[in-house]
């Protein structure tokens, strides 16, 4: 290929492509913690999050992305969690969110 300087590249698609995502890890997480599927996206976890109030950390968004097979950066994000447990206290579905933070770190350390 010739090296033409176009001054721009081709943007990568932002869409979550369920077909090309590898859902095995996501399925494993759901098998170990089926109650995660009961999340109704209320945002209580993020609202009460110690870390989320001071950083970009959005617990709900990260674990929703993990369920869709988007693992990139999830481990690093979960490192922001201070494990205070407030999110578990407020979750109306009784999801073990604190445990979920640990589970994601355990499963997705190398993504």
């Amino acid at each position: 290929m010739r090296s033409i300087r176009f001054g721009y590249g081709i943007s990568k698609p932002r869409a979550i492509d369920i077909d090309s995502n590898d859902l095995r890890k996501s399925n494993e997480i759901l098998r170990e913690m089926p109650e995660l599927q009961t999340c109704i996206g209320c945002g209580s976890c993020t609202a009460s999050c110690t870390a989320g109030n001071l950083t970009q950390f959005n617990f709900r968004r990260v674990h929703t992305l993990v369920r869709r097979g988007e693992y990139m950066g999830a481990y690093e994000e979960m490192n922001k969690c201070m494990l205070c447990g407030k999110c578990r206290l407020v979750c109306p579905r009784g999801i073990n969110t604190r445990g979920l933070a640990m589970l994601i770190k355990r499963k997705l350390g190398d993504f």
Binding site: F6, G7, Y8, G9, I10, S11, K12, P13
Partner: peptide, 14 residues
């Protein structure tokens, strides 16, 4: 705008 052409071309590519 040259800087925006990346997503213009990405749509044709799609």
């Amino acid at each position: 705008v040259q800087a925006n052409r990346g997503y213009s071309i990405a749509n044709s590519q799609k």
